[in-house]
Amino acid sequence: MDIHVSHVNKSFDRKLIINDITFTIPSGEICCLLGPSGSGKTTLIRLMIGAIAADQGTIHFENTQMPSIEMLKKIGFMPQHNALYDDLSAEANLKFFGGLHRLGKHRLERRIEDVLEMVELTEHRSRLVKKFSNGMKKRLSLAAAILHSPSVLFLDEPTVGIDPVLRRKVWEQFQAFKRAGTTIIVSTHVMDEVNECDRAALIYNGSLIEYDALPALLEKTENGRVEELFFMASSKKEGDLK
């Protein structure tokens, strides 16, 4: 489903964190929210999934305005911090989150098998999460997000703190979800990861400085690297201030 973000503003303690952002993510694509730490990526994701309310503007998933409980059934969310229960086993965590999505006993058991296999944690299913490495927790967190086969997947910095080999595997997984028709919104501050996406929203100081399909974005640069677009935005801001 298409996602429409329209003139969204959000302030915290009178500080403007998201400044009049408008863009549309076409269904079935991987869209990257790219920006340095503190640029507003997580806030934008939280606005899109309805965790916080926008001060102005609207967010629609197809024709449904967010927040919507109905729509939450179709959304998968992987937070930046793993947000798992350390004192429960991997399987118990999945049973809990699957239960909240009301998957039903048999479907839940089947999906747990599937996702554990997908993230290569089948043999660790009975271990307590507190005994997991950070990479294993990331994979389990991803498994919890996709358990109910969502049509839209929000991934907040999913590759932070994991090694390059695992990162490669994780991105392969995202590509597989995309092929299955899932729309994926992934935030990252790792510039190279933009190459995995169909399109990217470049966010700087709460503003959308560029939004386009990847080839079109790269055409706007001289060296084919998106960092350049951030440098240009930062130089323009300094110039404006002077």
């Binding site: 939280r46 999934i49 965790a51 409980i69 109905e70 939450l72 059934k73 959304i75 969310f77 937070p79 930046q80 911090h81 793993n82 947000a83 798992l84 229960y85 989150f97 909240l100 999505h101 009301r102 919890a144």
Partner: peptide, 14 residues
């Protein structure tokens, strides 16, 4: 603080 509240509220639970 662990983020699990936000995560569980992103499910259809009331």
């Amino acid at each position: 603080s662990g983020g699990t509240l936000e995560r569980l509220l992103m499910t259809p639970i009331k």
